[in-house]
Design a protein around this nucleic acid. Structure first.
Length: 408
RNA sequence: GCACAGGUGGGUGAGUGGUUAAAGCCAACAGACUGUAAAUCUGUCCCUCUCAGGAGGUACGGAGGUUCGAAUCCUCCCCUGUGCA
């Protein structure tokens, strides 16, 4: 099977469980740091491990442009390439269709992009996006979707949603036909050290050793009992993405029809695109109702520490957001006392730790005055330390939420 | 001492008679950031008042002058750099 989700406890609509992937087990609800270019900007992998990051995001579009899917595939896939043995999820590139809006052209067949790096022209379709994600070899891959802009007319939202649904079916069809081409071996790599790991020669695609046949979705329910032994075969899982803009009715329809196509998990996409925060919450809430309880639910691109806590307690299992890392690089830090803009003059002489309630390596060691100085001096270390702290804060927030749900 | 080249707002540096309180960059200060084209972007950045649209004052080394009008032209002075004595 591609992925297992075991729901262990629920409370106030929130739930906690385990997600079993080919590269380890993930406790949910989980926050997934974003490592677009096979790197969480500014933070080395060993620190991510120390922070107890269980799963990272990578981006198909960016990695496709550089270093290229073929390069990553030849190096054994993203895990080996970036020396990260825990789980990885890749986004399909659908979001870039949205954010690179000046450089794209969408047709039924797919999207023509112009590279933001050199202006060269490229084409992504559901099929090619799947092929790229299989080549990269993340544990969880996303269907190729269109992230509907906001605001948008209802007719436009519906058309966009229909396109995403057609692309979802195509994504799944291609994925099912080609998922055996994943660049890693069928034995769980996470339990092997680098030395023990079988050398991948790169001819995996030419047949020969295929992973065991897919037993995927069907067995998901039956083996969901809490005490079942954790055995994950090496296979990717494909998630579908619900769209439907800010329209509850279209969201419902999108959810039902996406579930009908059948995926290992379901994402709520198309939010955090400029709409008021309150509206985001309403749409999340009304979309969650229509997603199956036995599959992981992934809210894409959200949010602040308060938001991820809130959504976790509403029943969202997975979230990712660039906010902790980007804000960190820009001097905005999240603490138990609220936001701290470390660049402010008021911290120039402040000897106290950034967040006295935080046990992270940054708060244990450095003063606000020092962090402000690093930032003001444009020292690289500022970005590193700020990112480590923010991620630590996000991860700690989710640990707290899990604990709270499990204690119920 | 002579000859050139210069002295502009916190710094650097444009501007060589009139929308010039004076470009751009830097610094400083504040704000934004939510499936990463982001070590990015936006605003403020001489002083005072403001019914927030503006109003007034001061300002381009100093002092005079020419002109309706000067950072810009002229005279003298002060200072800096380079070269020659």
């Amino acid at each position: 099977m591609s992925i297992q989700f075991q729901n262990e406890a629920s409370r106030e609509g929130g739930r906690s469980g385990k997600l079993l992937t080919s590269h380890g087990e993930i406790e949910t609800p989980v926050f997934m740091p974003v490592g677009t270019l096979a790197s969480v900007k500014g933070v080395p992998q060993d620190i991510l491990e120390e922070l107890d990051v269980q799963i990272l995001l990578g981006n198909t579009y960016h990695l496709y442009l550089r270093p290229g899917v073929e390069t990553v595939r030849r190096m054994g896939g993203l895990h080996r390439f970036m020396a990260w043995e825990r789980a990885i999820l890749t986004d399909s590139g659908g979001f870039q269709v949205f954010s690179l809006n000046e450089l794209r052209k969408i047709t039924e067949e797919g999207v023509t992009f112009r590279s933001h790096l050199d202006g060269s022209s490229h084409f992504f379709s559901p099929e090619s996006a799947m092929a790229a994600q299989i080549g990269l070899g993340a544990d969880i891959v996303m269907a190729f979707d269109e992230c509907t802009e906001y605001p948008a007319q209802r007719e436009r939202v519906r058309e966009s949603m229909e396109l995403t649904l057609r692309w979802a079916a195509r994504s799944k069809a291609y994925f099912e036909a080609h998922k055996h081409e994943v660049p890693w071996n069928s034995s769980p790599l996470s339990v092997l050290s680098s030395e023990e790991r079988p050398q991948l020669t790169g001819n995996w695609a030419q047949g020969g050793q295929h992973p065991p046949p897919d037993t995927a979705m069907a067995s998901l329910h039956s083996s969901g009992q809490p005490n079942a032994p954790i055995t994950s075969s090496a296979q990717q899982a494909l998630f579908g993405i619900v769209q439907g803009g800010m329209d509850r009715e279209l969201r419902r329809e999108s959810a039902l029809r996406t579930v009908e196509i059948g995926f290992s998990g379901y994402a709520i996409g198309g939010l955090s695109v400029g709409e008021p925060r309150e509206l985001t919450r309403e749409i999340v809430e009304s979309t969650l109702e229509h997603l199956p309880a036995d599959k992981p639910r992934y809210l894409m691109g959200v949010g602040t520490p308060e938001e991820i806590e809130q959504y976790a307690l509403m029943g969202v299992d997975m979230m990712d957001c660039v906010l902790p890392t980007r804000a960190a690089r820009h001097g905005l830090l999240f603490t138990s006392q609220g936001k701290v803009s470390i660049k402010q003059a008021q911290y120039a002489q402040d000897e106290s730790p950034l967040d006295p309630a935080c046990g992270c390596r940054v708060c244990r060691r450095y003063s606000r005055a020092y962090l402000r100085h690093l930032y003001a001096s444009n020292e690289l270390l500022a970005q590193v330390l700020n990112s480590v702290h923010n991620l630590s804060y996000y991860l700690a927030t989710m640990r707290r939420v899990r604990k709270r749900i499990l204690a119920a």
